[in-house]
Simulated assay, not measured.
Amino acid sequence: MRKTIQTMDGVVFVAGKSKECTNSSCTHFGKHYYATSVLKYSLPYSTYGLDVLAFIGWQHEHEHQQLVEIQRSLKRRGVEINESNVGKLYRQFLALLGGTLAHTQEKLAATAAEHGGVVFVAGKSKECTNSSCTHFGKHYYATSVLKYSLPYSTYGLDVLAFIGWQHEHEHQQLVEIQRSLKRRGVEINESNVGKLYRQFLALLGGTLAHTQEKLAATAAEHGGLIWAIDALQPEGHGTLLYVLYEVLSGTPVSAIQLPQAQGQQLIEWLQPYQKLRYKVLATLSDGESAIIAAMNSSWPDAPHQRCQAHFLSNLSEAVLPLDTKLRQQLKADLDGMPKVPEFSERPQGPGSEQQQDSLPFFQESPICHET
Rank of each mutant, 00 (worst) to 15 (best):
I5C: 05
M8E: 11
V12L: 14
K17F: 05
K17L: 08
T22C: 10
N23T: 11
N23C: 12
T27S: 14
A35I: 09
A35E: 10
D51R: 13
I56R: 06
G57S: 08
Q59R: 13
Q59W: 07
E63S: 14
Q71C: 08
K75D: 04
V79K: 09
E80F: 09
N85P: 02
N85A: 09
L94S: 02
Q105R: 13
H115E: 08
G117K: 07
G123D: 11
S125C: 14
S125W: 15
H135T: 04
F136M: 01
H139W: 12
A142G: 07
Y148G: 03
S149A: 15
D158E: 11
D158Y: 07
V159D: 10
V159N: 08
L160A: 05
W165R: 14
H169E: 14
L174N: 04
V175Q: 09
E176I: 03
Q178W: 02
I188Y: 03
N192Q: 13
G194N: 09
L201K: 05
T207S: 08
E213M: 03
E213L: 05
A216H: 04
H222C: 02
G223E: 02
W227P: 00
Y242N: 00
V243P: 02
L248N: 02
A255E: 04
Q257E: 13
A261G: 12
A261V: 08
Y278Q: 08
L281Q: 03
S285D: 04
E288D: 13
S289F: 06
A290E: 09
N296H: 12
S298Y: 01
W299N: 00
W299P: 00
H304P: 01
Q308T: 06
S313H: 14
L322K: 11
D323E: 09
T324P: 00
R327Y: 07
Q328M: 05
Q328S: 10
Q328E: 13
D333P: 03
L334C: 11
D335P: 00
G336V: 08
K339Y: 06
G351Q: 14
Q355S: 15
Q363R: 14
